[in-house]
Design a protein around this nucleic acid. Structure first.
Lengths: 145, 145
DNA sequence: GTTTCATGGAACTTTTATTGTTACATATAG
DNA sequence: CTATATGTAACAATAAAAGTTCCATGAAAC
């Protein structure tokens, strides 16, 4: 494993798509840039497609494009589309029924995490893909051919 | 793996210690209740010991006790003592220098996560071990012999 | 229509992190 | 001295995530 995560791969790919709105970037091209495998790219972007964030077209010169303007894509959208949790869950063994404390600890932690999750989602919603792209472009990024 | 986590094991153990302040509970006794291994208990409580949350004594009738009142132990203390992250990190391969976008994405995410981490810590600080124990005891928990 | 190049998706392997286990040294009460 | 506890290191097992291979399918170019 390269210590990447699906979210960072997704965001990286989306910035590339936004930077080259006229092109359809193939999974293979993206994979080269993201230093990963084309199938991994397809898996991740496939989930974003179901959330109407990207579109794919087959055949020669086919590939991926954004299906909405980058100003209308928030990090929360991407996060939700991936079905990921940013918070580590701390649940116990479901088969652990010996001790009632377990359930209490789990419940308190569960409530806390739900709260926290909502908090994070609200913050993620404030960041748009276009913001991220501006950041990236400002730092001077190398165009893809 | 049983899908437990160090934090939930730690909290579970601490509630037990709080519930029986007169006893020194051994790693083996706790392990039975937590459905895990004595060495795992020692590893986790060992980290809490370094943060002055628990104390251990050796020899017959030795074991673990809280080193402070449960009202003075917050979940943040426990969380910090374990050196855990509640947030999933989304960093990329450190060797990935091909594309400058990676660094930008990483930086934005890193800033965001630091913010979020502080937010969570503040919330964790508001929950005391005694609160958790009250919850657990209210649900009716089985005493250990 | 056929060729080419792309996605779609299943099945499998590899890698990484975490947890569990064994073994043994050390300390302490009785 | 002995029994019982922690402390720690080294190793094994397990589960999650990512990477890989393979082939079916669809769409564009010729």
């Amino acid at each position: 494993m390269k210590r990447s995560s699906r979210l960072s791969i997704a965001l990286h790919a989306l910035v590339h798509l936004h930077a080259q709105p006229d092109k359809q970037l193939s999974s293979a091209a993206l994979a080269t840039c993201l230093m990963t495998n084309p199938v991994v790219v397809r898996r991740i972007l496939g989930e974003l497609r179901e959330a109407d964030i990207v579109e794919a077209s087959k055949g020669p010169n086919g590939g991926w494009t954004l299906s909405r303007p980058a100003t209308e894509i928030t990090l929360r959208d991407v996060y939700a589309a991936l079905g990921e949790r940013m918070l580590l869950r701390t649940e116990s063994d479901p088969g652990d029924t010996t001790c009632a404390i377990v359930r209490s600890v789990d419940r308190v932690m569960h409530d806390f995490l739900n709260d926290a999750e909502a908090l994070l989602a609200a913050r993620l919603q404030r960041v748009r893909l276009s913001d991220l792209a501006t950041e990236a472009l400002h730092a001077g990024f190398p165009r893809l051919d």
